[in-house]
Amino acid sequence: MLIRRERPADIDAIRAVTTAAFNRPGLDGEPVETGLLEELRADPGWLPGLSFVAQADTGEVVGHVVCTRGQVGPVPALGLGPLSVVPGHQRAGVGSALMHAVLGAADALDEPLVALLGEPAYYGRFGFRPAREEGVIAPDPAWGDYFQVRLLTAHTPRARGAFGYAEPFTRL
């Protein structure tokens, strides 16, 4: 498996990966994450250097992750997601490899923190903690411990307050 930056030729494959990863029985139409990803790509908050794919040895794109520009209080920060892995490759380390790649890249770019909405038991292994413990307020208080942050090397104590995702997230 190879983790690399997204290329323009990957867009259709990423769409298929995202749709397959978030498709659920009884879902009418495509998952909301598929449309969100397209809207994020067209948003000023899109950061091409933080969009990664997992490519299988066959050359097939089997996973994708992206961070987009957000902010916490007055400080620029990152919002992570969606993270997608096709069902046939889930629980095989693809998601973990994508997470390590995007977090390493974000740290190398001197970003202060990454925020996400997700399962604490899964994301805790990557150093994510409930955001409120770090003084970061979720866009929706009902998210509780599912709204998490990972502090990076460039973190500053000024990065406290309400978190705001890239604008397409606000339409979910």
Rank of each mutant, 00 (worst) to 15 (best):
I14R: 01
V86M: 10
L78R: 04
Y122I: 06
F22S: 07
A42W: 13
R41W: 13
D10W: 08
V53W: 02
L98N: 01
P120G: 05
E134P: 14
P82L: 05
G118C: 02
G49R: 13
P130I: 10
L113G: 11
V94L: 11
V136Y: 05
A101D: 07
G49T: 12
P120M: 07
S51Y: 02
E134R: 14
R15S: 12
V53F: 06
E119P: 09
I137Y: 05
Y123Q: 03
G88R: 13
L47E: 10
R15I: 14
V114N: 01
R132C: 13
D140Y: 04
V114Y: 00
T58P: 04
D140F: 04
G59F: 00
G49A: 10
A101I: 03
F128E: 00
G88T: 12
A131N: 08
E38C: 15
G127K: 10
V72R: 03
R125I: 06
S84T: 06
E38K: 08
R132V: 15
L117T: 02
V85F: 00
R15Y: 10
W46M: 10
V62N: 02
L27E: 07
L27N: 07
V17F: 02
G59V: 00
D107I: 00
I11W: 15
G79K: 00
S84Q: 03
G93P: 05
V72G: 03
W46C: 09
I137P: 08
L78E: 05
H100I: 11
V53C: 09
G35W: 04
E39G: 12
A121V: 06
D10T: 08
V86C: 07
E33C: 10
D12A: 14
